[in-house]
Design a binder for these strands. Structure first.
Lengths: 113, 113
DNA sequence: CACGCATATACCCAGCGGAGTATATCAAGG
DNA sequence: CCTTGATATACTCCGCTGGGTATATGCGTG
């Protein structure tokens, strides 16, 4: 379970990360939204925490989990070697992703090599 | 093995993709560069091919494998939801580092929310 | 201080995936 | 055709990981 790729291979863990992308959540919140048994949630969170994907702050009996950017950036960095390749093949989708990538107010500016 | 994430979770498959990012390769080429038994290479290539990561063209007895962009773009698209997040947190990281820079300025009380 | 809620941990079990080995396919060339 | 080289497939085995269940820990409250 060393690599970040193995960690995001698990669908429930990806779901947890997506939940946390909007805002921080307690274990109970995640448990309810994903309809996953609480020990499973805790176990996934432990994996994510130890890999640096998330961190927790204590709020009385609850633990609030929030995202940490590092490991996901690592994935992004690995993907970089392929961007050149696929932009040569499918320009339209690339532009599409760029648009989703940027807030509406941002001006168009090449962000990838 | 449905999802693209499970497929790139395997280190040797990522290595194969990286090799193909530079140029197309035969099975034997990959086998030699990765020092992996040939059946293992063929099996990984089969997985990658069926998931649309690669395609093969016939060159006499050899099969030349080359990259296809689709699935990797899918990963990129999933990552998109976090880009906004981690660029926003560069600031937080800087503030954090700034604090750690300063020589022990008394103990910090735990923050409340 | 005892109880209850929120979370973490321990343990077992079943399924899957990757390596290894052996074998099949198929093309080129003598 | 028969052989050799290149690749694919079949099959077994083993380890790891995720879910389920039970239990521990920890904190706030009456």
């Amino acid at each position: 379970m060393e690599s970040v790729f193995e960690i995001i291979a698990e669908p429930n863990r990806r779901a947890i990360l997506s939940l946390l992308a909007s805002s921080q959540q307690s274990v109970g919140d995640i448990e309810r939204q994903l309809r996953l048994p609480q020990p499973a949630v805790s176990k996934h969170l432990r994996v994510l925490r130890e890999a640096g994907f998330v961190e927790s702050t204590v709020d009385a009996q609850r633990r609030l989990y929030s995202l940490k950017p590092g490991p996901l950036q690592e994935v992004d960095a690995w993907l970089a070697q392929f961007r050149r390749f696929w932009s040569a093949h499918v320009d339209a989708l690339e532009r599409h992703l760029d648009r989703m990538d940027q807030p509406a107010t941002a001006k168009r500016k090449p962000r990838r090599q």
